[in-house]
Computed example of a mutant assay.
Amino acid sequence: MAEERTLILVKPDGVKGQHIGDIITRIEHKGYKIEALKVINATLAQLKEHYHDKVDAPFFPELTSYMQEGPIVGIVASGTNIVSILHRMAGATNPGQADWGTVRGDYGREWPDGNLRNVIHTSDSPSEAEREIAIWFPEEVNK
């Protein structure tokens, strides 16, 4: 298996809940390498590019509002088979359905306003990871 890179975004609820260190610790305890890390205030343009397949969805305004509730922390990490491993580590998209032991199962919850706030984003394929890295870390392209 080849080395891969992936993008992790600690979303505003994960930052506000002070889970940045917990998430980084999980990545490092698996033996993966943190290649880049930064605090980001997401722009609408970045969000439209990142969620390009959801721009026309009825929930897109709520999604962008959520992603702009506060800063996010972007992480580029690398390692063998990292994309699928970290995607599993994140847990089910809906935190109410995520298994204990996953990031969303341990730190996520459902909210009375019905908006999905799920702590973390992880890339779902190596090609998608590289596309997403280019959006949030343009300085990391072709590394």
Rank of each mutant, 00 (worst) to 15 (best):
N81M: 05
F59P: 04
V73A: 03
N81Q: 14
A90E: 02
V83F: 07
R88E: 08
H87D: 02
I72L: 12
T64C: 14
G70T: 08
G79K: 07
E62D: 15
V55G: 08
H52N: 13
Q68D: 02
P58W: 13
H87T: 02
V76E: 03
A45F: 00
I85W: 01
L44G: 12
S84I: 06
H52F: 11
A45L: 05
L44D: 15
G74Q: 06
Q68V: 01
H87Q: 06
T80W: 03
I72H: 00
F60H: 06
P58A: 15
T64G: 09
V83S: 13
S65T: 06
A77M: 05
I85H: 10
F60V: 11
F59W: 05
R88Q: 11
Q68W: 04
N81E: 14
L44A: 14
Y51D: 13
M67E: 08
H50G: 00
L86D: 00
P61K: 14
A90D: 08
D53S: 10
M89K: 03
T80V: 12
P58E: 15
G79E: 07
F60I: 10
I72F: 00
Y66T: 09
G91F: 12
E69M: 13
L47S: 11
V76A: 06
T64K: 12
P61S: 12
S65Q: 11
I72E: 00
V73C: 05
T80M: 08
E49G: 08
E49H: 07
Q46P: 05
L63K: 05
T43G: 02
G70H: 07
P58S: 15
V55E: 07
E49F: 04
T43K: 02
S65R: 09
F60A: 10
A42H: 04
T80P: 05
L63C: 10
F59Q: 04
L44C: 04
G74C: 02
A57P: 00
E49L: 11
P61M: 12
K48I: 05
E62P: 00
G70I: 05
F59G: 02
K48A: 09
Q46L: 02
V76L: 06
M89G: 11
F59T: 01
I72S: 10
P61A: 13
H50L: 08
G79R: 03
S84M: 10
P58C: 09
I75E: 01
I72G: 02
Y51L: 13
N81C: 03
L44H: 09
H87N: 05
K48R: 15
G70C: 07
P58V: 14
P58R: 12
K54F: 00
Y66S: 06
H50V: 07
P71W: 04
I75P: 04
H87P: 01
I82W: 07
D53G: 01
E49K: 15
Y51Q: 12
T80R: 11
S65H: 10
